[in-house]
Nucleic acid binder design. Structure first.
Lengths: 215, 215
DNA sequence: TGCTGTGAAACCGTTCACAGCT
DNA sequence: AGCTGTGAACGGTTTCACAGCA
């Protein structure tokens, strides 16, 4: 099956598995493995092999019958598919603990991503740099900065109050997608993809499961 | 439907909606609203009202026919259900950027949670405190500290390499649940609930969706 | 033979629609 | 009359099972 102009958003679960798969492929590649079957890959993270094949089949035919998948080749296809071929520029609103943590994170500055700037309203922080050298700009320069640095994905690491207005400013400034860590649900505005990630929800989930199983 | 001794883990989606619901109830309560119907609640976050009712019905009968749900009462039920009646003690492995961000976070130190300690192997950090006063202990004291502070939930904010061994140590020390931010999948060990949260997956998801919709 | 790609079947979560309580 | 609680229908995702290609 092929569907060059896909309008449907990729299901969350599929995207998650493909991220897992990409990570796995990186591991296999650096271990010198050239070929892997869907069975081998599935075993790695306790999934069904048909699921791997179905996930990939949605986007093209990447395997070789009787052989499996060529690691290097599949990895390249996947990266292209996920838009990780070129580096996407990130801008983080909020130079607090979390914002700085993300700005300095190896994971946000590799494999297709790079943090170009932090934004804050605190005059004492503005002008400084994060530990790894990400500049902290005044949040009032958000609009110009997005254009100047070509920021494609915005990250909200601010308190709840500031989130919605900032999301709107980011959208208006031309940011295409937003990862929101503030504890409010930012709605997807027209032209702006939004992913809300509330870290306390993960804790509550664990607490819930603890309450269900043990006391 | 009632099921006093539930063994099934709560579905991710349900848990997520109940967290959202709890947040919503807090808002309603402080706005002085006493009663809310599933229709009103559902409208708040664009869900189906039957979903709200079904989610709640799994755990008991909390509503009043013809009236709706009493906000204060439902909130209390939910908190009890989710194990948030009493404060759960957290311990964070890794006093780097992310670990400190979480330790200082208001959200990890309210509404049923409290960070009791950070753990690190860097001698220069050990003995110090986070900005909000969370002590940084030597990771070699993990086992005693878990017992002493009665840590119930462990959080891994360490690089990929350290994650699995630390998870095993936490499990052995008696921690009941683990929230893992390291970019490796920590398997659920016997007696240890594990929630893996890879922040780069959220970014990749956005990049993926961007790649699908725009270039 | 061995593995992919894929229809068909099974499963699960969501939505509908209404009986039943207040 | 109004809203909950829930069986039944629906839709989407996962798994099975196999045809077809290397």
């Amino acid at each position: 099956m092929k569907d060059s102009e896909r309008i449907e958003p990729v299901p969350e679960a599929t995207s998650h598995r493909l991220s897992l798969l990409l990570r796995s492929l990186r591991g296999l590649e650096s271990a010198g493995v050239h070929t892997a079957s869907s069975y081998e890959i599935a075993a790695r993270f306790g999934l069904n092999s048909a699921q791997i094949r179905k996930d990939l089949a949605q986007f093209g035919e990447f395997g070789v019958r009787g052989v499996g998948y060529r690691v290097r080749e599949l990895k390249a296809h996947l990266k292209a598919l996920m838009g990780l071929e070129r580096t996407r520029v990130l801008g983080i609103a909020g130079a607090g603990n979390l914002g700085q943590a993300l700005a300095n994170s190896r994971n946000f500055n590799a494999d297709g991503f790079r943090v170009a700037a932090l934004f804050d309203s605190d005059g004492r922080k503005v002008g400084a740099h994060s530990r790894t050298g990400v500049p902290i700009r005044d949040v009032s320069t958000l609009e110009e900065s997005v254009a100047e640095l070509r920021i494609e994905i915005g990250i909200l690491a601010v308190p709840a109050e500031g989130a919605i207005p900032l999301a709107e400013r980011m959208a208006a400034a031309g940011v295409g997608a937003l990862l929101n860590f503030a504890p409010v649900t930012v709605p997807a505005l027209p032209g702006l993809l939004v992913k809300n990630v509330d870290l306390t929800f993960f804790l509550e989930n664990l607490s819930f499961q603890l309450a269900m199983t043990k006391g």
